[in-house]
Write a protein that binds this DNA or RNA. Structure first.
Lengths: 87, 87
DNA sequence: TACAAATGTAAAGTGTGCTTGACATTCAGA
DNA sequence: TCTGAATGTCAAGCACACTTTACATTTGTA
């Protein structure tokens, strides 16, 4: 990336209050079982269950791999419920 | 999401061999110090240093917050070097 | 009914993302 | 020079993403 001029500073901070996802829906669209999806992603079936239940904030690489299996972007799979300090 | 018909199964698995990012460049474009960026993201300065040096695979929420500070998408900040089993 | 496949829960263990604190190095400006 | 801001290293510790195993529940179907 070629940096010419600094832009003015952004004066926001961002909070992500909740992370939801469409993994279960997408998995059904693609006709995959939890086991099959786990195998494609090279994670355990427990990980799929926990993700589908929204139990945790996955690593970026795992999120990316999920989005690739479903042939879309990360933001199409994961929904970030957001608030910021200024509103 | 309204699931009507399952699509045919994808028969790929995905490997992410390397994760690079443009955080340092973007930080300079926005004229932020590591300290300032850390404060916006509510992480430590060490975390920024380690991220810029590519030392780890951040959580999805942190990756998302970074992309929002820089007003772009996750895939604009992070570069996934990819290979898959089928070639 | 009975069986198998798919989904789910529980619980203990491991690896790593991220923190904290202390200190070193670089570099621009007075 | 000297000083302070910015960047960097190192190391110990904690929280949680992810694994593994074992077993329970649901659901479709012969």
């Amino acid at each position: 990336m070629d940096v010419k001029y600094p832009l003015r500073k952004v004066n926001f901070t961002f909070e992500v209050n909740e992370l939801r996802n469409r993994i279960k829906d997408l998995r059904l669209v693609y006709d995959l079982t939890q086991d099959e999806l786990a195998e494609k992603l090279e994670v355990s079936r427990q990980t799929i269950i926990s993700l589908e239940k929204g139990r945790y904030n996955p690593s970026l690489i795992l999120a990316y791999k999920i989005s690739r299996v479903f042939m879309c972007r990360i933001e199409d799979v994961f929904i970030f419920e957001e608030g910021n300090e200024n509103g």
